[in-house]
Design a protein around this nucleic acid. Structure first.
Lengths: 209, 209
DNA sequence: ACAGCAAGCAAGTAGGTACTTGCATACACA
DNA sequence: TGTGTATGCAAGTACCTACTTGCTTGCTGT
């Protein structure tokens, strides 16, 4: 049963490259360095194999944790966005194919959509908490704001590889999205321009820290 | 040459549903109510046919016009976002399949990416103008802001059909995204609370008008 | 030393795929 | 009336697809 693992990994690679239809058992077998028959003996059918491939990704699909006890929105959101970007980027090829083939293989919907749902829910409750604690502007449109953040992250993670020139450099992206988002929910600390010199310092700190 | 049109339309439908690999010449011929041979006689090959299908969409792919002479950001952005959402929603099935198959059919990259590039460019220059005219906060991160808007629109247009419950109702979405975006670029007019009664009215107008 | 089991190999089945060929039909225009 | 032109139909080619069968090899634990 050494082959099982190798087949699974190979199948994941091939599926990511070619999608369900394009991931032929022959290709997978070659990629795994294994006889095609072994593949059928181990998993029964191509469908079962690819289910076994997508299954474990359900767990990974869950987005990173967002505390329900927010104290430092900037830091917390930055971590959340950074990790989310990484995970989506990892899953991109599979995600894109699965989305395309969703109509024909609805059983993959769970894999394709769960992460999105969970991310939205956790960021929504997070924003509500921020509002409760006065860390976000009281009439922030939480739902729309949440969609704008997750949408941006999704768009970056998926489309950056196709049109890299429209996105901020990879190492700055998360920070800059978060800065924009903080403004959007009214959480920037720029609003106390008492002394003329001070705000500039505050501002630059809030954009880089 | 009546068939030509029917084949093209049928091919577009079948391709949108099944992608390149799944769009068999047989399916297309049946969908067009035409003999399969006619398809080859008219277009030569399956690849040529699908190129002829994606070609005309290049034009459509160009996002709606955004004035270079901004006067009313809220109205202008609302129109832009509304139209962009509509167009992406129309093109979603084709877009999703094309993105998935980009590695295998790089010739479709133009179709898949052009709209995104153009949208980003026009919204970027638009934002710069806003800043020039003092209609947006002077240290707005134009690039990141642009990505957040186009990313949100892209995400909505594509993923709403898969996970509708995370998005605002279709008829409110554009307006709410724009409101959020106006805050993000510091373009809301809520900042002049001179008389206690007035701001409430202003605020509600700026969120609904 | 032997049983059991994972795996390879060669071959085959039944169906699908893009694409071709040859011939028949029907309408259009001169 | 004839001639081109678009289309349909039946059949065929060469290849790919998922999946099966029967037999062989080699390693493992008892």
């Amino acid at each position: 049963m050494i082959s099982r693992e190798r087949i699974l990994e190979a199948a994941a690679r091939v599926y990511a490259k070619h999608g369900f239809r394009g991931a032929t058992t022959r290709l997978i077998a070659i990629e795994a360095g294994v006889n095609e028959v072994t593949l059928f003996r181990t998993f029964g059918s191509k469908g079962a194999l690819l289910e076994a491939v997508l299954g474990p990704h359900h767990a990974k699909a869950a987005p990173p944790f967002l505390t329900e006890d927010p104290v430092d929105p900037e830091a917390e959101l930055l971590e959340f966005v950074t990790l989310s970007l990484e995970r989506i980027r990892e899953m991109r090829p599979m995600l894109v194919h699965t989305m395309g083939e969703l109509e024909e293989r609805p059983e993959a919907a769970e894999f394709a959509c769960r992460g999105r749902r969970v991310a939205h829910e956790s960021i929504t409750t997070y924003l509500e908490r921020l509002k409760d604690r006065g860390l976000a502007h009281p009439d922030t449109d939480v739902e729309a704001a949440a969609v704008m953040l997750t949408g941006t992250v999704m768009s970056d993670g998926i489309a950056r590889s196709f049109v890299p020139e429209v996105y901020p450099p990879l190492d700055e992206a998360a920070k800059r999205y978060v800065q924009c988002f903080l403004r959007l929910i009214g959480a920037t600390k720029v609003e106390v321009p008492a002394v003329p010199a001070v705000p500039a310092v505050r501002k630059s700190r809030s954009r880089t820290a």
